[in-house]
Design a protein around this nucleic acid. Structure first.
Lengths: 223, 223
DNA sequence: GTAACTGGATACTTCAAGTATCCAGCCGCA
DNA sequence: TGCGGCTGGATACTTGAAGTATCCAGTTAC
């Protein structure tokens, strides 16, 4: 099919498709002449995935390119799932240190807290993992805000996270084709995270409602 | 204190502080003369919160303004927690419909699925809640990607979300001062969400590692 | 008194994410 | 064979967010 039909079938404007081609998110079509190329169903599928990642997953174009790159490597290497996980943007950017001395101390103590958590849970992760670094940065900042996690609280969250991750993994098993598996993994990792966040918000809302109603029989819904 | 000291104490450049003042994120200092104003500890605290929300929480300036506005209303109204929850950006933007006919059908069926979930869990939420709308949009898109949740899977996630929300709420109780409570709630809602996401990623990584090791004794770490 | 600093307004910069325009080449149809 | 309308590709332009920088008149500490 030509670009105009690709556009019609996916609802993505032609100019945007060209943009994605330029950015390397979408492989070029099979050129049949100097000014003509043929696109296939795989382009439709890929375009849908791009749309889902950017709109639902909230990924930037650059992050989407990295993630899709990991997907395309997936047929060869076994660590595809890990590569995809690492390609996804970390929700907490580890910023550089500000104060030169007391910073280091806070940094170290947050790192120790993370290390202890990982040891307790018997989770393995390299110290250089972006997730470990992000977690450290977050704990440090929470401490500065006087809102650190109480003892055991972080472990309780981690235990729930493990349950969630188990569900995630279950959704991915049973897919045999490595490329399809990689795509499924991307969807589970990138799109189901916001879904869980929504569920959490709804649950919070409900608990607040229940608590308010229980406290003073005021059944006013939030706002 | 003057603006330069406020800058020194928080590490935020003077120009940025002025920007935040312009954007209404930070209340103006108490003017002592035409070109002089006095800032206090509350400005330091507020600035820290702004930094945490934008860098750790990933909020935009506009979202941060909305959230802080909800915090400032918190001393008066009771539904402060709900207002804050609604002021936070929804991770899934509900996009407008593309195709005029079959879209509506998919939309409806996704909405029905969400309604059923809420009914099963005995969660109450207005149909117009941004969280409900976002969830509907996400389910619709997942269906289009052939990656819908299996029966019961969504409920399983929701049950875990409820446990997480319970932990969230526990972290907020015990704070009496309404303003402090609102600030705590913002931190819990906006910053602990990324933290949980990090924990989930670490857990995923670990499960993948374990699974790979178990499957073929290949202990290669991801990437 | 004057150099350095301040608050406030306005202009400028940078980046991401598209959109729009232009151009030559090609396709189908008369 | 001619030709209007598409096509791929390159390049230029637009928009919005998030700061930065500059300017200016008032103030303050030495």
């Amino acid at each position: 099919m030509k670009i105009s039909e690709l556009s019609r079938r996916t609802g993505v404007p032609v100019a945007s498709i060209k943009y994605f081609l330029r950015q390397g998110l979408l492989p070029a079509g099979r050129a049949t002449a100097a000014t003509l190329a043929e696109y296939g169903d795989e382009h439709v599928q890929r375009l849908r995935l791009i749309k889902a990642l950017t709109t639902l997953g909230g990924l930037s174009i650059a992050a989407t390119r990295d993630v899709l790159g990991a997907v395309d490597q997936a047929d060869s290497s076994e660590g595809a799932l890990g590569a995809i996980s690492y390609a996804l943007p970390v929700p907490v950017a580890a910023q550089g240190a500000a104060g030169p001395e007391e910073e280091a101390e806070a940094d170290e103590s947050a790192a120790a807290e993370v290390a202890e958590l990982l040891a307790t849970l018997e989770w393995q992760a390299p110290d250089t993992s972006p997730h470990v670094l992000g977690l450290t940065a977050a704990l440090k900042e929470l401490r500065r805000l006087d809102a650190r996690y109480g003892p055991g609280e972080l472990a309780a969250y981690a235990a729930l996270a493990e349950s969630v991750a188990r569900l995630d993994l279950e959704r991915a098993v049973g897919v045999e084709d490595p490329v399809a598996l990689a795509e499924r993994a991307v969807i589970v990792f990138a799109i189901c995270a916001p879904v869980f966040e929504l569920l959490r918000r709804l649950a919070q809302e409900n608990q607040v409602r229940r608590r308010v109603a229980g406290a003073d029989a005021d059944s006013t819904p939030p706002r």
